[in-house]
Write a protein that binds this DNA or RNA. Structure first.
Lengths: 217, 217, 217, 217
DNA sequence: GATGAATGAGGCTTCATTCAT
DNA sequence: CATGAATGAAGCCTCATTCAT
């Protein structure tokens, strides 16, 4: 028989999970958690429905694996950035904001954030997992950033727990906006200008500084 | 026969759709579009499932009606606040933020916001409608607030279009957080403290002001 | 249009549960619990798959309903027989044995017993339900029968808990044999002769009674 | 070269089917036919799923082989006991009952009994085989026991064919109860007490013997 | 021989929608 | 108008069986 006889399937054990995770990420981001059918994930990965279950026990575990594979590693990197940083906290603030944008905000992973915001209520276990693995770590990073700045006398002594939420909000919304109303907006948001404005506002505030003492840094 | 002969307890026909819309709003907000069952909507409205179809062609039309119905009435009130305000723009900022919270953020309209964020991707027409009727008007308000502050020399001359988005983000997120991860959070967000922190940060920034010139207002 | 246009379905709310239960009883007995497909139950009852779920939450509840509907009522009757009986306990023994045979052993319900013996291990909740609703009540009946005989000086003072199991065994096996090896047996078991032998043996035993004192009753 | 050069730990090829059959027996008995997964059979036998198919064409053939394989070896042992016995038939009855329990009831063969009771309906050929090889021979033993007792004037002249079934029933049920409702029972059955009660009842019956003539033996 | 990745039919369950009453 | 019984397509998941390695 010539090689044109197509095997019913091809043995590719090592590559399968990655292919499935990639397909799942795409579809979860595109359609949301509930609306993503495992059949479609399998089809996009080029395998049958049953194959998916060889690697992931169920839909929930598949989603968790997507998060673990894609989101969690980035958090570790960011944590290292903060702990290893030497310099003014305003610069660290910029570093974090733009680094986060490059690695998460601008990527498909932003879709995961939107998905969780939209559907976490219906999947409590997934929500808990995401909260524990992602949200609380991200929050802790911002808190430590703020505390660092205050401890070094570079930031005002604000209420870090509240400020953390306020600081996170513009970054989260930037991700959400990429997945909502994109077609409606006349002038699409430009992430770089948005982030610059964000950093500028959070560092210097809106108020005009007293004469003779221009805001620095 | 004039209508005053009807007993008071007799439900007006026109009330039916409103009751269905109210029930649908609650459930769409709470569970999302896909997870909301029309059985439950009808049950919460106190009618049978078939009745729902007398007023709405299908689930999608019900969703659209929910958004359209709930968006309209709240518009316009806040716009008057800005145009009539006399005083420092920082105080107007506070006024807007807390007024928005009382009249929108803490109300059912917050649920609409969450709904649109979650589902706009699946309902482009509704998204467009919501964008035109709500988002652009809200944005315009913030822009005019910023411009007023700058014109009066009370705010620094920031890029108002970008700053507008940054300013809106924490207010939007406050609404979203009321509907996401509420069960996971150890310390639930307190809107008042959050808003105070938000206003403080946006007015004064994080940076320590130069010695001898404390931030004012 | 003439009346020969066939409606897609016929409204028969009151009759539906009974029809479904009858179909379910047939199929459970015929194929066992696991092998019975709800599709087939619905089809045999002349309705669609979904209709079944209007009346029974799931397969397990359907099975429980079959038991409640068919088996439990018979137990109540038998309990009344015992409590209301006046006469020699040997006659009550006969009454119970033959009554049980007529109402359960000879009917489809015997198939339920066989089913539970075969599959109870795989469905712990069903097993618990059946044990609580049927087995323990049946056992209690036999125990009370034995105690009555002993209390009235008609039965020897045997260990009633063990004797109860021994007494139940032949009745249970008679049901099981009707659903196992029926095709293999050269001489099929004749229930009446079997029961007569059963009663005779349990009352008088195998041993030859001492001369001059023939066993009575 | 000769086979003695092989290391002891090297598994003989012929052992494979036996290990698979042993694993399958355990699982079929424990879970029934439908609920037994071939994955688990292979895993318990320490081989891969594919290997199973090298030895058995499919699940059905595996089942048949399990029954056939486990039935054969135990036959014949008990038959000798009866033919060689000298003494009162009541003692032979005890001997048979307890001997049966030790050699069959308490062993894996009890599992086969349960298996056949549960599944004989679905496997007529196996049922026929089991009936011919096991049931009829076991029945013949009991019949010969009863006939011996009657012939020696030790047992009453009962209908031996019917009595045989009645006598077998408690022994069969004891095996079945070991595999059904074990988790539900408050007081698990103790085989020794059960068998004692069984023997006592079948020898002496329930009725109170006439005064002055206590039952003997 | 042995492996185990892959398949896909089939089962349970849900729910938007229809329509006889 | 209002009802709610009935439908059936579709989704998640299982597992006997196949076959390239």
């Amino acid at each position: 028989m010539s090689s044109d006889t197509k095997p019913r399937w091809e043995r590719r054990k090592d590559a399968r999970p990655q292919e499935l995770l990639a397909a799942a990420l795409d579809l979860f981001v595109e359609r949301g958690y509930a609306a993503t059918r495992l059949d479609d994930v399998a089809a996009r990965a080029g395998v049958s429905k049953g194959t998916l279950y060889l690697y992931f026990a169920n839909k929930e575990e598949l989603f968790k694996a997507v998060v673990r594979e894609n989101v969690v590693p980035v958090l570790g990197e960011a944590e290292d950035t903060i702990s290893g940083f030497e310099g003014h906290s305003a610069d660290l603030f910029r570093e974090i904001a733009f680094g986060w944008w490059e690695r998460i905000g601008a990527t498909k992973l932003a879709g995961i954030t939107k998905l969780m915001m939209a559907e976490s209520h219906n999947f409590p276990e997934v929500a808990q997992f995401y909260h524990d693995e992602v949200i609380s770590r991200g929050n802790a990073m911002i808190v430590s950033l703020l505390k660092r700045g205050i401890a070094r006398g570079e930031f005002r002594p604000v209420d870090v727990d509240q400020a953390m939420n306020v600081v996170c909000a513009p970054m989260l919304m930037l991700m959400l906006w990429r997945h909502a109303f994109t077609a409606c907006r006349n002038e699409p948001i430009t992430p770089e200008a948005y982030l610059s404005s964000f950093i500028d506002l959070f560092l210097h505030g809106l108020l005009v500084p007293p004469a003779g003492n221009p805001a620095q840094v």
